[in-house]
Amino acid sequence: MQSILVLTDFSDAAFKAAQYAAMLSKVCKSKRLILFHAYQTIPVVVNEPVVAAGRESLHEESLQSMEIWQESVRQFTDPSTSISFFVNDIDLAEGTNALCKEASIDLVVMGITGKSNLEKILIGSNAVRLIADIQYPLLIVPKNTPDRMPAKVVLTTDLKEVKEKISSSSIFKFLDAIQAKLLVVNVARKDKDVSHLRTEIMDLHSLLDRYTPEIHYINHPDTIEAIDEFAQHHQAGIVITFHEQQNRPAALFHKSVSKKLAWHSRLPLLVIPL
Rank of each mutant, 00 (worst) to 15 (best):
I90A: 12
W69Q: 12
S84G: 06
S65V: 04
L107P: 09
I134W: 00
T77Y: 10
D133H: 04
I42H: 11
S65Y: 08
D78I: 12
I121W: 06
L118A: 10
E102M: 14
R55F: 04
T145K: 08
K29D: 12
V141E: 04
D147F: 09
I105H: 04
T96E: 09
V87W: 12
L122Y: 02
M110A: 05
I68P: 03
E71R: 11
I83W: 13
L33R: 02
P142D: 00
L122T: 05
E102S: 01
Y136G: 03
D89W: 11
I90K: 11
D147I: 09
V50F: 07
L63Q: 14
G114E: 05
E67A: 10
K16W: 06
R74L: 01
D147A: 15
T145E: 13
I112C: 07
K115N: 13
V141H: 01
T77M: 11
Q70C: 08
Y39L: 09
N117D: 02
N97W: 01
V128Q: 08
Q40K: 14
S125E: 07
A103Q: 10
R32S: 14
P43M: 10
I112P: 02
Q135L: 15
N117V: 11
L33M: 08
E94R: 07
P43G: 00
P137T: 05
C28M: 15
L24T: 00
Q135V: 08
W69L: 15
A18Q: 00
L107Y: 02
D9L: 06
Y39T: 03
Q135E: 15
T77P: 10
R74N: 09
F86Q: 00
T8F: 07
K31R: 08
I68H: 14
R148F: 07
N88W: 01
V46R: 07
N144G: 14
L63W: 02
V51E: 15
I123L: 14
S82G: 07
E67Q: 15
N47H: 10
V27Q: 10
F10E: 11
A14G: 03
A38E: 11
H59Y: 03
T77F: 08
R148A: 11
H37T: 08
V45Y: 12
Q19A: 00
V141W: 02
F15D: 01
D133P: 00
D133T: 01
A13K: 04
S104T: 12
L63S: 05
R148D: 06
T8R: 02
A38F: 11
K29P: 07
A13E: 06
S116N: 05
L118E: 03
T8A: 05
P150E: 06
D89P: 03
F36T: 03
D147L: 15
N88E: 09
L107N: 13
V51C: 05
F85I: 08
